[in-house]
Simulated scan of single mutants.
Amino acid sequence: MSPAETERHHRFLRSFTAHEPAIRAHVRRLVPARADADDVMQEISVVLWEKFDSFRDGADFRAWAFGVARFEVLAWLRDRGRDRLVLDEEVIAKIAEETTAEEPRLQRQRDALEHCMKKVPADQRDLLMQAYQPESRIQEVAQGSGRTVAGFYQWLHRMRKLLLDCIRRAMTQEEVAP
């Protein structure tokens, strides 16, 4: 691989990895099932890489990727058109438009959550993360924490409230900050 190709590859990877969570969240709002969203994300990744030469340096990678994602979701819908549970293309277009407009606020919320999570003691943060793993079972997490299931749910409720309050404070402070 030439130095120019290596640099191109690195630019793409830096941009993609920085924006992948937002792109994935965008796709999850447009595609009903997580497994389908994962499949669509794989296609989006390939298309973004293949079309990266058409991306202008200095342009908004996220906006460009959202556009590509929208077309890939529409292609997925077209392929799945026989499925009764697939939304109409106009509905997907409207949702995509609204989620694109909401993305800056959602990113600020994700940043605030990350900031607030850093304030949570490591052992409690680990428990929170265990509770939200895709295949986790609350009964097992509760048992591992030394709590009853009811006690764990109460603790989880308190932690969610603390995080929500912290996020709201962070968002409010951000709105008044210069």
Results as ranks from 00 to 15, higher is better:
residue 2 S to R: 14
residue 2 S to A: 13
residue 4 A to Y: 10
residue 5 E to P: 00
residue 5 E to M: 01
residue 6 T to W: 05
residue 9 H to V: 12
residue 14 R to M: 11
residue 15 S to W: 05
residue 16 F to K: 04
residue 17 T to N: 08
residue 17 T to S: 07
residue 19 H to T: 05
residue 19 H to I: 02
residue 22 A to K: 01
residue 22 A to S: 13
residue 22 A to V: 03
residue 25 A to C: 03
residue 25 A to S: 12
residue 27 V to S: 00
residue 27 V to G: 01
residue 27 V to P: 01
residue 29 R to V: 12
residue 34 R to Q: 09
residue 35 A to M: 06
residue 39 D to F: 09
residue 39 D to M: 11
residue 44 I to E: 03
residue 44 I to S: 04
residue 52 F to K: 04
residue 53 D to R: 13
residue 53 D to H: 11
residue 53 D to P: 04
residue 54 S to L: 10
residue 54 S to P: 06
residue 59 A to L: 08
residue 61 F to S: 04
residue 61 F to D: 01
residue 62 R to L: 15
residue 65 A to Y: 01
residue 65 A to I: 02
residue 67 G to L: 09
residue 68 V to S: 06
residue 71 F to P: 00
residue 71 F to T: 05
residue 72 E to C: 12
residue 76 W to G: 06
residue 76 W to F: 14
residue 77 L to S: 11
residue 77 L to I: 12
residue 80 R to E: 11
residue 81 G to F: 04
residue 85 L to A: 11
residue 89 E to F: 14
residue 89 E to L: 11
residue 90 E to C: 06
residue 91 V to I: 14
residue 91 V to G: 04
residue 97 E to I: 04
residue 97 E to T: 11
residue 99 T to E: 10
residue 102 E to R: 15
residue 103 E to Q: 12
residue 104 P to S: 05
residue 104 P to L: 08
residue 105 R to Y: 10
residue 108 R to E: 13
residue 109 Q to M: 02
residue 111 D to Y: 05
residue 112 A to I: 05
residue 115 H to G: 07
residue 115 H to K: 14
residue 117 M to K: 14
residue 120 V to S: 02
residue 125 R to S: 11
residue 131 A to L: 07
residue 131 A to D: 02
residue 132 Y to A: 09
residue 133 Q to D: 11
residue 137 R to V: 15
residue 138 I to A: 10
residue 138 I to L: 15
residue 139 Q to K: 14
residue 141 V to T: 09
residue 144 G to D: 14
residue 146 G to M: 07
residue 146 G to Y: 04
residue 146 G to K: 07
residue 150 A to V: 15
residue 151 G to Q: 12
residue 152 F to D: 00
residue 152 F to W: 00
residue 154 Q to A: 01
residue 157 H to L: 11
residue 159 M to G: 00
residue 162 L to A: 14
residue 163 L to K: 03
residue 163 L to P: 00
residue 165 D to F: 04
residue 166 C to V: 13
residue 168 R to I: 08
residue 169 R to Y: 01
residue 171 M to I: 01
residue 174 E to A: 12
residue 178 P to F: 14
residue 178 P to Y: 07
residue 178 P to G: 13
